[in-house]
C-alpha cells in the first residue's frame, strides 16, 4: 500500500444553522496522495482547502464518499486515535496550538496522550526538537518566541507522535518572511530525511512551487493537478480562479504576451534568469 491519503467521491456540506440549508463544499471530490510525497494544495480563500484538511484526521467526517488514511476509514470511530497519530495537523495560528508553557512540555503533550513510556517520550521530544532546530530553546516559554519558532515547536509536537503524514493548514500565513523560510525549510527536511508525507495547504505560490506536486482546488473541485511546472505554466487558468503564478513565471508569461516568448516552466530564479538570458542574447 503506497497511498497515504485517499479521498473517494467526497461529499461534504457544512450543516446549516436552524432551518437554513447547509453550505455545500464538496460534491464529488476524489484525490489520492502517495506515501512519502510532498503535495501542496493551493486555492483562494473559501475554496474548501481547510475543510479538506480537516477530513484527513477525522475532525470532520464525510457526508458522502470515503476518506482513507493509511488504509483506515476516517469515519470508523474505533480507529480515531490511530488515525490521528498517523496524520498530524499543524494550523495557521501558532499561539492557539501550543498547550504548555514550557517548550519541551508542549512537545511531550502528544506522546503523553498516546501513553508512551516516560524515557521514550524524553527521547522523542529531544529528537523532535533537534529535528526542527529548537533544541536549545527546550526550556523557554513559548510566548516569548517568534512566530516562526512557535510554528516549529508546533511541528515538533506533531513529529514527536511519529506520524506517517503531516498536514499543514496555511502554516505560514501569520509569519514574517524569515519565519516563513524557517518553517518551509523544516517541512522540506522532514519530507526528505524522515520520509514523512507532507500535505501543505497554502495560498503562497512560491511555497507551493517547492512541492513535488501541486493540486489546485477551486469551488470544491480539482482545477489543476501536476508538478509545479505543469500547474504554474497554466497562467491563464490560475488568473481566472483568482490565483497567480509565482513571480518568475508571471514575468515569463508577460514577456510572452509582449512578443518575447520565454518557456513558462522556470520556477526558480536561476532557471528563469537563464531562460531570459538565452532569449535575449
Amino acid at each position: 500500500m503506497n497511498e497515504s491519503i485517499c479521498v473517494e467521491h467526497l461529499n461534504y456540506a457544512y450543516p446549516g444553522v436552524e432551518d437554513t440549508p447547509g453550505v455545500a463544499v464538496f460534491t464529488d471530490l476524489s484525490l489520492s496522495i502517495e506515501a512519502g510525497s510532498f503535495v501542496a494544495i493551493l486555492g483562494s480563500n473559501g475554496c474548501g482547502k481547510s475543510t479538506l484538511a480537516k477530513h484527513f484526521n477525522s475532525i470532520l467526517l464525510p457526508c458522502g464518499g470515503k476518506v482513507y488514511v493509511c488504509g483506515m476509514d476516517t469515519s470508523d470511530d474505533d480507529l480515531l486515535i490511530k488515525i490521528r497519530r498517523s496524520v498530524g495537523m499543524v494550523f495557521q495560528n501558532p499561539d492557539n496550538q501550543i498547550v504548555a508553557n514550557v517548550v519541551e512540555e508542549d512537545v511531550a503533550f502528544g506522546p503523553e496522550n498516546l501513553g508512551v513510556a516516560s524515557p521514550e517520550i524524553r527521547r522523542r521530544v529531544d529528537q523532535a526538537l533537534k529535528q526542527v532546530g529548537m533544541y536549545e530553546f527546550r526550556k523557554h516559554a513559548p510566548h516569548l518566541l517568534s512566530g516562526g519558532q512557535k510554528q516549529r515547536i508546533a511541528i515538533a509536537g506533531i513529529i514527536a507522535m511519529e506520524p506517517k503524514c503531516i498536514v499543514l493548514d496555511e502554516p505560514t500565513a501569520m509569519l514574517d518572511p524569515r519565519g516563513r523560510r524557517e518553517v518551509m525549510e523544516t517541512v522540506m527536511e522532514l519530507n526528505r530525511n524522515k520520509d514523512i508525507t507532507v500535505v501543505l495547504i497554502t495560498h503562497h505560490m512560491d511555497e507551493a512551487a517547492m512541492a513535488q506536486r501541486v493540486v489546485v482546488l477551486h469551488k470544491g473541485s480539482v482545477a489543476a493537478d501536476g508538478t509545479p511546472e505543469q500547474v504554474f505554466s497554466q497562467v491563464e487558468l490560475l488568473h481566472r480562479i483568482g490565483l497567480a503564478a509565482p513571480e518568475t513565471v508571471e514575468l515569463c508569461y508577460e514577456l510572452g504576451q509582449q512578443g518575447i516568448p520565454v518557456p513558462l516552466d522556470c520556477l526558480d530564479i536561476e532557471r528563469c534568469a537563464q531562460a531570459i538570458y538565452d532569449r535575449m542574447t
Binding site: I81, R84, G88, M89, N93, D95, N96, N113
Partner: peptide
Amino acid sequence: FRRADELATAMECRCYHGGEGRTKMKL
C-alpha cells in the same frame, strides 16, 4: 473563545482524550 475553539481542535488532533491512559514525560 476563538482561541479556545482552535486549541480544542489542536488538542484533539494531538490525540488528547482526557486523563485516562495518559503518561508523563517527567515522572
